[in-house]
Design a protein around this nucleic acid. Structure first.
Lengths: 116, 116
DNA sequence: CAGGATCCAAGATGATACTG
DNA sequence: CAGTATCATCTTGGATCCTG
């Protein structure tokens, strides 16, 4: 039996999910929620530079994919938190961010050379 | 002493690198090169659906960031391969793709519900 | 084969204002 | 507070043609 999914095939549904998850905002939002559940404004603060619009879109999108769940606490109080699936993905994404930090010296050095 | 980099700050250089690496094409290209060095057309075949233009752009970009290296073998024969830094990042990205495969069932189920 | 140049459509993103 | 609507803009991505 072979793998049912293949993100390298444009047709495969997993390609869509990769698109939903691999991106500046989705990735940062997921990793930010890894710490703890967060409210809208709280998340916006955690993910520097994101606009209300993009945050709203991203949260809706990830919610539709079942990666985060929206919980209305009471009144005008909403919190977003990772689902099990979301936590799994967020952990992997955190690994990418960590890897980025680790290679920053090489990247900055390489840019020095190609930049001028 | 604290962490020198923080991708959650729009100003931090690491945010730029995250942008360069976290994206449909960059991510898939890096993972595709994890198997072995590849030539242009070869890479295009490995990453289904990418156009020459985007592949060219992506390769140039990743090369400038020192994540892949371009090697002119001889004549019109060029191969791209991961640098150490690139391999490190690609490995982390492969983890994300793997995580996506694992959560696909939940994602598809969640979409069923929100889709209609 | 590798890959740059050009033109164009579509989607992403941001700022601002507004509502429940 | 949590979000949506609107408008202007920038970037992405594709198709095509062209060159070393």
């Amino acid at each position: 039996m072979e793998r049912p999914f293949d993100a390298f095939s444009p047709r495969c549904p997993s390609r869509e999910v990769v698109d939903d998850v691999i991106g500046r905002w989705p990735a940062l939002v997921l990793v930010a929620l890894l710490d703890n559940p967060r409210r809208f404004a709280d998340t916006a603060r955690a993910v520097g530079g994101i606009s209300d619009r993009m945050l709203s879109r991203t949260l809706t999108n990830l919610t539709n994919d079942g990666l985060i769940s929206r919980a209305e606490q009471h009144g005008q109080h909403v919190t977003y938190q990772l689902t099990e699936a979301g936590r799994h993905l967020a952990t992997a994404l955190k690994g990418v961010v960590a890897a980025v930090y680790e290679v920053m010296p090489q990247v900055l050095a390489a840019r020095q050379i190609s930049a001028p």
